[in-house]
């Protein structure tokens, strides 16, 4: 086995170094630029101390967007998980048209988010789109999908759920298909009903897959911004702005590279800390439940 040791770095290093080289410069650049006043009319790496960070502390839009993200991303991912799990259970076995459903349920995650958001915008268009039209046809009042805070949030979540529930569905279905039959037979011999079997057998067995799926989705959902940009452009007011979108406004639309650098850095640290804590908690809770 000693022969193997010699090669161990040759497995890891190519990938690790590639990533490191591609990532380290941007990271250092962002740290440095966050201490500069780089903006559109002064595109230089000067040094202005911590002025950007002081400004950030008083930036209500930034902090409000972070709080909003916690609710928005957390809520969306949870709903995706529940729906994805339910769907996976339903087409797991004993279902007609199994393969058709499975393909159909996978398709949304394959589509380009910016492109689909443009389609969704036409769907939620309040006077020309089909949603309000259909509501009107069945005698319901029309809804201000993109111009009042509550419905706009619902519209955003709908788009995210449509796009990413398939991701949960895929991981959970693959997980279900890999379960061995014995625990289920044992439960059947004990005379457990479907509900009891689910909570005592299926759910605990699915814990590891669930943790992975939830964490990956949380990471991706924290970057939510395409759908916001296209659907509401953060409105009404700034009530649907996410950090991803706010960073985009400051950094690219207004070209305040320095200030956006300090925002991004703070955001990155916050996210890494939050996601680490969340994943530890998830692992612990689900593991204890598994016993």
């Amino acid at each position: 086995m000693d022969g193997m040791r010699r090669y161990k770095s040759m497995f890891l290093l190519p990938g690790l170094l590639t990533l490191f080289i591609i990532i380290i410069f941007p990271l250092l650049f962002t740290i440095r630029v966050s201490f500069s006043g780089w903006n559109v009319s002064n595109p230089h790496m000067d040094f202005i101390g911590g002025a950007n960070f002081v400004r950030m502390l008083a930036d209500h839009r930034f902090w409000a967007s972070i709080l909003r993200l916690i609710l928005l991303a957390g809520g969306t991912v949870l709903i995706e998980y529940v729906l994805g799990f339910a769907l996976a259970l339903m087409v797991w076995r004993n279902v007609r048209g199994q393969r058709v459903w499975r393909v159909l349920f996978l398709v949304p995650m394959m589509t380009t988010p910016v492109v689909m958001a443009a389609i969704w915008q036409t769907i939620f268009n309040e006077s020309l789109g089909p949603v309000n039209d259909l509501l009107g046809r069945v005698g319901l009042p029309t809804v201000q999908w993109l111009t009042s805070t509550g419905p706009a949030t619902v519209a955003l979540m709908t788009v995210e759920i449509w796009q990413w529930t398939p991701f949960m569905f895929l991981l959970l279905l693959a997980g279900l298909l890999s379960l061995s039959k014995e625990p289920f037979m044992a439960a059947a011999i004990d005379g457990a009903g479907p509900v009891r079997t689910f909570f005592k057998v299926t759910f605990p067995l699915m814990a590891p897959v669930s943790v992975t799926a939830l964490i990956i989705r949380l990471i991706e959902a924290s970057k939510m911004s395409d759908s916001v940009y296209v659907l509401t452009s953060g409105g009404p007011g700034s009530s649907t702005e996410t950090p991803g979108y706010y960073l985009y406004i400051r950094g690219l639309k207004e070209q305040q590279t320095g200030y956006a650098g300090s925002l991004s850095l703070t955001y990155l640290v916050l996210m890494i800390v939050t996601l680490t804590i969340v994943s530890r908690l998830l692992v612990r809770t689900l593991k204890t439940r598994t016993g």
Partner: peptide, 23 residues
Amino acid sequence: VPGVNQYMSSLANGVADAISGQK
């Protein structure tokens, strides 16, 4: 003037806050 996008983005944000009733 230089930086016009920042000025206009800030203005639009304020106007939107008023229209939405936030301010």
